[in-house]
Each structure stands twice: as structure tokens, then as C-alpha cells.
Design a protein around this nucleic acid. Sequence first.
DNA 1: AAGTGGTCTAGACCACTCG
DNA 2: GAGTGGTCTAGACCACTTG
Lengths: 255, 255
Amino acid sequence: MILEALDRHSVVPLYYQIRQHLLGQVRSGALKSGQPVPSEQALSARLGVSRMTARQALKSLCELGVAYSQRGKGTFISAIKLEKDFRQVLSFSEEMQKRGARPRSRVLAFEICPAGAEAAEALHISPAESVIRLRRIRMANSLPLGIECSHIRAGLCPGLLENFDPRTSLYRVLASRYGIEIAITDEVAEAGLAKAEEARLLHIAKGSPVFLFTRTSYIHSGKPVEFVKSVYRADRYKIVNRLTRSRKTVSEGRN
Amino acid sequence: MILEALDRHSVVPLYYQIRQHLLGQVRSGALKSGQPVPSEQALSARLGVSRMTARQALKSLCELGVAYSQRGKGTFISAIKLEKDFRQVLSFSEEMQKRGARPRSRVLAFEICPAGAEAAEALHISPAESVIRLRRIRMANSLPLGIECSHIRAGLCPGLLENFDPRTSLYRVLASRYGIEIAITDEVAEAGLAKAEEARLLHIAKGSPVFLFTRTSYIHSGKPVEFVKSVYRADRYKIVNRLTRSRKTVSEGRN
DNA sequence: AAGTGGTCTAGACCACTCG
DNA sequence: GAGTGGTCTAGACCACTTG
């Protein structure tokens, strides 16, 4: 059934190799939804790994959303299609490429200025402290999609203004040049109507429906590094989400 | 430092007791953001459990978003506030109670009818197959918030129409009476303008901004059980999300 | 009764970070 | 070099599900 595809001398962990192997079987259709994945004991025996390792492989498969475990019954392939990066922060470029569209941006402003009240609160700095402000029109296949205005604490990335080409990926530069890796983004989405300037920039009628986003991004330690306000055309953008219902294990009561 | 609060004869798993203990220290302020959590070795030695058990406790703490681990350095309390149920499906009642509002509903329709094209596609049934349709105005503190129209495969819950009081919690009845436990909800949110009927029911002007939700809920096996379309007032509702950026482990390349 | 996943132990080696 | 988390082993007992 399962080939001996394990490389015990690889730097790739065994449980990860097993997971990828099973993932391949799902992708190829050899394992279909509802079907049981080999049990922990079976994997352990067949592949000559300890049961804990087999277990870790199955658990990580479940964390991907590809499978689910039932005590006393087994582990089964989930019918739900996308083993998806639903809740991943994607940069605009990444998101567009994934959807098969050509991303482009037009820079409206790229400057150092005081944070102002709203950005200051989100970034936990004083309103007078300097931020790098980058305002761009985001386009997919040359059609305007939205306007994004990003604020980054200037102290975190000295020289960004001089060294960054604002038409390229901000996240990539933050990571490679300054070692700033975004770990979490909190996002608030509201629905509203396009104001006159926004409508003009987005090529829609004033009063058209739009999404208003407010995003704050944090590095792993929890320190906020970026605050973004955006306006997106509602006729060309929607929010897709996947929510899970707690299996009693998440909270301890009262919630 | 850590009290011997472990009950080795409890039905509650040791790792879970340890996690809750650490969670308590975070809540009480004894462990603050940025501070290191006791290491796996330290917990293991101090509490007399194996390192794997201590490890499992720390791992589950990280899965809650309360802490994060760094190889070679340690595990630290995350500064990001809510150890939250961000990604949880909550029923309307649960959500409102959490926000401290009194939930109420007014039933507009509660009937059996053919699924129709849109619901049929989401539920993977034929458009002629019967569904139970429940249309309600959702209110918080007596103010109308939104209109929800839910479609449930009639075959899954015989007698629901006679036995369910549509002003109470649908999810609770599905779970207790029919053993249907919602595991995952896929949600699409769009922004739009209120139509005449919607505006009247929601007490807003026609053309006011609204959220349009389309939700499909699945049980663990992936079978779809409920399809909901809703319209929510944008001035009283917003979407809050937390996104994480992949730590290279999630996908295997090309993404 | 047999098989499953959930928990737990007491070790081990490794790569990594930091002083 | 000392400490940390990441992986792995070879066992064990348990609760749960199913025939």
C-alpha cells in the first residue's frame, strides 16, 4: 500500500515525510474523502517508525484540515476540499498570483510623517512619532481593486525610504533586509460607501459599496509593526473565511 | 514557582492541567507578555512529569495563541491579547451574549420548501429536494441587526418543523436531538447596498451599506448540512479576523 | 474481544541560540 | 559549553467504538 519512501538520513523529519506521502495520496485521488487513513499502529508497523512518530504525522495532517480523527474509530480523509491557507496573511502580490491575476500597484505617496492618532494607537507609539507612510492603488490585470495606506514604525527599518522600490513587495523587504517577519495580522472589515476621492481613484461611482479594512500586523513577540487602512471595491472583492466550531477542548467553561 | 496543583488521579489529562495552570498565571498577570514560560525540562523536573508531557502542555498553549516557541531560545508569552475564539463558529445567540448584548429573533418564515438553485449547489442536493427554510430578523438589545435565511436538508432532521421553537438555538437542537455537530463553516462576505425590503425590515434607508454573508456549514465528515444567506447592517456589524503568516511548515514549496 | 486514538513515560540525539 | 526546543524510540495503560 504505502511504499517505503522514507529516507531516514534526510534532514526532513520522518513525520513530515509521512505526512507529505499521505498528502500526495490525497492529491492523486488514491485516498478519497471519508476513507480511513492507515491507523497509527499500521503506519508504525509498516514504516518501521515508532507509534508516536506515526501519530505526529496524522496529527499534522489533521491540523492541515485534510483529515480528522475519531477516538476509537480511526482517522479519516475530510471531504472538505481545500487544504487551504485560508487564514494566512498573504501580501497583495501573493494573493493575486494565487488567483491567477497580474498584480500591479501605483504609488500615490511614500514618505515619512507623524503617525497620527489612529495609527499611533494601533502601533502603540505616540502620535508624533515618525512612521513610513505608503499609499498605493492596488490593481489586478490593470483594473483598480483598492487603495491601501500602510504605516510602518520608521524606527524599525532605517533607510527603507531610500532603499525600497515601493512597487515591489514590502513584506519581502521587511523580512530580508530588516529581519522583520510578520506572524499575525488582526483585521477588521467594515462595509461602507465610496467617498468622492476613493471613487475617482477606483473608477466607480461615488456611493458605490466598498469594503473598509483596518489591519494591524505583529511579529511573533506581539510587537505591532504595521498598520494598514484600505478601501476595496465590493464588486471585485470578497472575503472568504473558514471557521471551526470548538470541540469542547478549546476553552474551559464560561466562554 | 509553580505549585503542585497536579492531580494525577483526575480524569483531566496532565498536560491539560499544566496548560490551564499556565493559562491561569497569564490571566492573573503572574506571566506577562514577552516573559519566558518555564522550559520543557524545568516543567518536567518540577512537576515530575515526562518531558513529552510538559512539551504537550506548552504546545497546546502555543496552539491557543497565548505563547510561541523559538528553537534554542525558549517559549514566551505572546503579547497579543486575546487567547481568542477568533476562528470559531458561534451561533448568533452565542456571539451576542459574548458581546454582552441581549439576542432576540423575530421569525419571518419557517417552512419546508424546495432547495432552489443556490442552496442546492451548496448542500450538494438537487434543487427540487426539500429543505427546511428558516428566515429570521436578528436583533441585539431590540435593535435589528440583520436578516438570516437558513436552509437545512430536511432529510437530516425529520420532525424539526414540529418540534423546534424557532426562537431558540437551532444549533443546540441539531446537536442534541439529531446528533448533528457542525464542525466547519465556510463563509463568504460581500459588501452591498440594502434593497427596499431589507431596508424596511432593518430600519435603515434603502441603499445603506450592508454585509452580505453566504455561509455553508459542514459536519466532520465534510457533508454539508446548512446553507445560510444573510444581510447585516454595516453600521452595527463588522468582521474581525486573525490571520497568521505561514512559518514555512504549512506548505511544501511552490505556494 | 479486537482495534482505534488519547495519554504518558524515560530515555536519546540533534540543531539551534547565547554568553 | 550549557540550555533550549525538535524529533524519535519502544514500550505502557486507558477510554472509546464496533462487531
